[in-house]
Design a protein around this nucleic acid. Structure first.
Lengths: 123, 123, 123, 123
DNA sequence: GTGGTCTAGACCACG
DNA sequence: GTGGTCTAGACCACC
């Protein structure tokens, strides 16, 4: 289910947005499925409704959901743009990590080795 | 030289610390070389002296420099611990990036391809 | 037919009112023709009857329809006032758009060009 | 100066964002110029600081400003993306207006006439 | 009932 | 001092 980690340094609304995006992309949340209402989720997670609303607004901005005032928020049926954005972010992140590693003197062969391990890990 | 990018979302002191650490590890700053004084650097970069001091404190905490009261801050001669910490951080970061990429559905082969490009880039 | 787009940011009742007005002005709905009953349309569009009722009230207010208590809503035979209101709204809108475009630095010639395209498009 | 119209139906933060964007694009606010602080503007306009903050966040999201936490918000030196977005919005708006006008039975010649008037008006 | 907006007041890291 | 985040509680239009 949707959850929040207070030890995480990212803001709560960002964690929520990322979580829900992942659930949408993985199919755990289906197209046109309704998200829990702002108030309901606020009670469930013991979080202020405004914070939930901020997360939902962010999700709509990122094209993951669409919102109908007075009805609720729903998973978008076309997630391609969100998926593309996420992939592109991941690629940038990866490139950054490679360059950082190189600057630290980590050998290319070591990276290749680590890819082998990391890519096939379970979690 | 040492520089700062205000549009970067990382705090100024963190940028400074990272910059100086990189310069120390790359040999651009040599062991026992003295860093500019807090005030001097503050004037040069048009930055609040407190911020410089915070960066210098962070550098000492990370084992990159040592401070002599009344004299200034100097590059440590033994940077191995700092280097190891940085390498380990880079490896974690890399592993994270790989797993994130896998979750986004990026193929292993694509990552190998990207390593080739990123590792051999100039900047 | 009458339809509704939930992803549209305009309220449902407004979409309905606009749709029906357009159908009346284009002749698709004829003078004195009866609109579907509130309940019937509510079932058909899977929409709350209150929303339909609000749209019908709005149509009556705008002079597009007249309502006979206990019988239903009918297209007005004299749509001239509605047509005039709509024309005047469209003209205002157009003038606003032109001024906005000018403020953005769009050339007059470009606007003339765009009129050519937009006015002769099908949809 | 920056101002707000309570009679306007757009939310306050949106009015602020649009106003400031216009001032930036017209050169009234210069690159790297600092905006008034959230609290300061809040006092001046007698508006809650959160609302100002929302407007500033929106401006950053739209690429009009950049924000340095602990320092303030500043006009971006490269406003091309914001300008392009605004132009594209204006063109869409214009096209919509033309099509709406056509549906209302307004003649093309009338539109051309109106462009003449509207484009050369002062305000 | 729903989400959107606004106010009020608090705490935090940063400079 | 700055902006970022969060909480609390209110009002609105819409469904």
């Amino acid at each position: 289910m949707i959850s929040v980690d207070y030890k995480d340094k990212r803001p709560i609304y960002e964690q929520l947005a990322v979580n829900i995006t992942a659930m949408a992309l993985s199919g755990e949340l289906k197209p046109d499925e309704q998200l829990p209402s702002v108030r309901q989720l606020a009670v469930q997670l013991k979080i202020n409704p405004n914070t939930i609303a901020k997360a939902y607004a962010e999700l709509e901005r990122r094209g993951v959901t669409y919102t109908v005032a007075g009805k609720g928020s729903f998973i978008n049926s076309d997630l391609s743009s969100a998926a593309k954005a996420q992939q592109s972010a991941a690629e940038n992140n990866f490139t950054e990590a490679v360059m950082q590693a190189r600057l630290c003197g980590i050998e290319k062969s070591r990276l290749l080795e680590m890819i082998g391990e990391a890519y096939d890990t379970d979690k």
